[in-house]
């Protein structure tokens, strides 16, 4: 039986709650209100109940976008998390080369999102871009503007280029925080590199990886700017993700009601998946 917790300290977070209410909860409540109405202008709106939710949930284009979004986020996590850990493990632990590595890894994180899209848009072109030109010179028929597989490959590669550094930096900080005594004990036991990784480093990286997985999931699930600049959602709809569909609906077509319903469903999916990740990665801590 666990001991009783004193929850009175929660009152200390009331100022933060007020700030979050002003910047997030009240706008979210407004979106719920929009999602139940057909809105023409500020004074002309009609209550339609759950009509927009029925429409959004049965829209095959949005179902396709949702599937693409899950596949994209799954690929991002499967590539970036192991790759980030690997980069962190291979980095020098101290000295000037460690600083150089940290600086180089930080660079992609400093590039604005729309600039990343533009860089890769040019980089991938067969006529003037080095990457596209190199692939075509090797005899690979690569054209991200015409071939959906090439477009997916480029969007994924761009995201990996942009964000693997974040996981690597987080993992590096986690690795540096492990006391030497653990490694000394492992060396006395003649533990293999794999055993050191599996039983010392990976468990100690758990908390930073939890933050990394959550950040990368939420970010990749909300991705908008980079694929919008790179492919514009094409060819066809092959790289149209949920946020692009939402923006088109809310700002392009000014369908505030359906966009509100879409936003609430989108929010609930992110909330559910983030909670599942968080629970799966922390529930053993409480045992």
């Amino acid at each position: 039986m666990s001991k009783t917790k004193n929850n009175k300290a929660w009152f200390l977070v009331l100022p933060v709650f007020a700030l979050v209410a002003f910047s997030a909860i009240i706008p979210l409540m407004t979106v719920v209100n929009y999602s139940l109405q057909d809105i023409f202008d500020a004074s002309t709106r009609y209550f339609v109940g759950i009509e927009w939710y029925q429409m959004i949930l049965n829209d095959s284009r949005l179902q396709d976008s949702l599937l693409r979004q899950f596949i994209f986020s799954g690929c991002v996590l499967l590539i970036e998390i192991p790759l980030g850990i690997l980069v962190a493990l291979m980095m020098p632990k101290a000295g000037k080369w460690s600083v150089v590595c940290l600086l180089v890894l930080s660079l992609p994180l400093l590039v604005p999102l729309n600039v990343v899209g533009t860089i890769w848009q040019i980089f991938g072109r067969a006529d003037i871009g080095l990457f596209g030109w190199a692939l075509n010179s090797l005899g690979i028929d690569y054209n991200y503007a015409a071939n959906p597989m090439d477009a997916w490959f480029t969007v994924l590669l761009m995201d990996v280029w942009h964000w693997t550094s974040l996981i690597a930096l987080l993992s590096f900080s986690g690795l540096r925080a492990i006391p030497d005594a653990y490694y000394q004990a492992a060396s006395i036991d003649r533990a293999s590199n794999w055993a050191i990784f599996r039983f010392i480093q990976l468990p100690k990286l758990k908390s930073v990886l939890l933050i990394g997985v959550l950040l990368r999931f939420m970010d990749s699930f909300m991705i908008y700017t980079e694929p919008f600049v790179l492919t514009g959602g094409g060819p066809g709809n092959s790289t149209t993700f949920l946020s692009q569909s939402l923006t088109k609906m809310a700002i392009g077509q000014f369908d505030i009601g359906p966009a509100g319903a879409f936003s609430i469903i989108y929010f609930l999916i992110i909330l559910l998946v983030s909670w599942l990740f968080y629970t799966a990665m922390t529930h053993n801590d409480n045992k």
Partner: peptide
């Protein structure tokens, strides 16, 4: 205010 409706107000 905030485009409230009676059902959404009751919900919140």
């Amino acid at each position: 205010w905030m485009a409230w409706t009676t059902p959404s107000a009751m919900f919140f």
